[in-house]
Nucleic acid binder design. Structure first.
Lengths: 210, 210
DNA sequence: AACTTATTATGAACATTGTTTTTTATTTTG
DNA sequence: CAAAATAAAAAACAATGTTCATAATAAGTT
């Protein structure tokens, strides 16, 4: 029985992604299944395979959506190029670190999905997926250009990745309980990472010294 | 047909762990299965379940073994409390960071297994698993006590986690190709992280300033 | 308007998974 | 040597992702 065009493919596409994000709030990734997603939206498993190409590619689509949501949340307070808050660039980076962790903590299963899912088989991530991650790096890079206005693009890229890598690592270890410390001190660690590294870089570049 | 006691349970336990580590060099985690491990060592799947309690617990046992291997590799060069190399404490931490990434890069599937596998259901990691991770943190903490000899234990704990969190985050993103940079610059990033943060901390504590 | 042709979602089938239960072969015990 | 215990395996089961043939609907044609 195939009643046709009750929803367009694009609609089913969106419905499935929403369903996964919804299900991942009560079910962890390993207990999720294509069939559960299908029944959640009232379609057959094979329909989802027709549209997405496979279960893994459905999850990759979800991953992109989550990355977009994360980006939106990070820029929610201080629009990308908008008027600056009382916060300086360093304070903005620090706040983004805290927001990053907060998002991961409130959407653990989705967050783990994003960073545990690799591209299908040796092949690279999709372009839009790359761009979604790149946007995140650029959020920090933009602030760094204000802090180190004479640094080369290569230096900015390196520093932004070091900063984000640290934020990401601490967040990953924290939400899996592998830091062996009370959750409350994680913001302190994130701040120590951001401020400590920026202080060191500033001194190294001779911009702010004593 | 049950020929009994050809191997003791402890032997099968070890054989299975070795088999998983071996298989993970040519097969990624999602293509591994309990049945493949069983046939690799010439036993039935149910036998492994009897011994480990389940597939996930077999993988957790592997995770512990990999953590131990990683620790051994990190201390291979400079024994924990042994005579110091020409390297100072900061250089040792930097070298450990590079070794950490090298290990992860040479054992990608095993490394991902360790940090993507969570304890069965809301319950904490096993004690030995915790200790295996703690040993890693302490490797850095020990060096930090030489750099900041008047810092409190809490400060040392915090700094060691910030350092290791950053090393771990950069490593994770790098082996999944999510840093969007040539692999060759990752050591530079790790060094920038370690040296930048330590420089910032030193300045903040007023120990080494200008 | 009736008939033909394309779609489109589906349901059944398949191979594989982790796990449970039942059987079978071996060892230990009385 | 017989009987009880036990260790490993085979068989059975439910659930998974995926493929394929099918039925139901839409679109096209005369």
């Amino acid at each position: 029985m195939a009643r046709r065009k009750e929803h367009t493919h694009a609609e089913i596409h969106g419905m499935a992604i929403i369903a996964v994000i919804h299900l991942l709030q009560t079910v962890n990734l390993e207990n999720l299944s294509l069939r559960k997603v299908a029944t959640e939206i009232g379609y057959a498993p094979s329909t989802l395979i027709n549209i997405f190409g496979g279960y893994q590619q459905l999850l990759l689509a979800v991953s992109e959506q989550v990355l977009t949501d994360l980006y939106q949340q990070l820029v929610a307070d201080y629009g990308e190029g908008a008027a600056m808050q009382p916060l300086n660039a360093q304070g903005i980076i620090e706040k983004m670190a805290h927001d990053y962790y907060q998002f991961a903590n409130e959407n653990r299963a989705c967050f783990k999905l994003v960073f545990e899912l690799s591209a299908p088989q040796g092949q690279a991530l999709s372009l839009s997926h790359q761009q979604a991650i790149d946007r995140l790096f650029n959020l920090i890079a933009n602030q760094l250009t204000q802090l180190f206005d004479d640094a080369s693009n290569a230096d900015i890229g390196l520093m932004s990745r070091v900063l984000w890598g640290g934020i990401h690592g601490l967040t990953c270890l924290a939400i899996d309980g592998k830091l062996f410390t009370e959750q409350a001190v994680l913001p302190t660690m994130l701040s120590s990472h951001v401020n400590g590294y920026l202080l060191g870089m500033a001194q190294q570049k001779g911009q702010t010294c004593c």
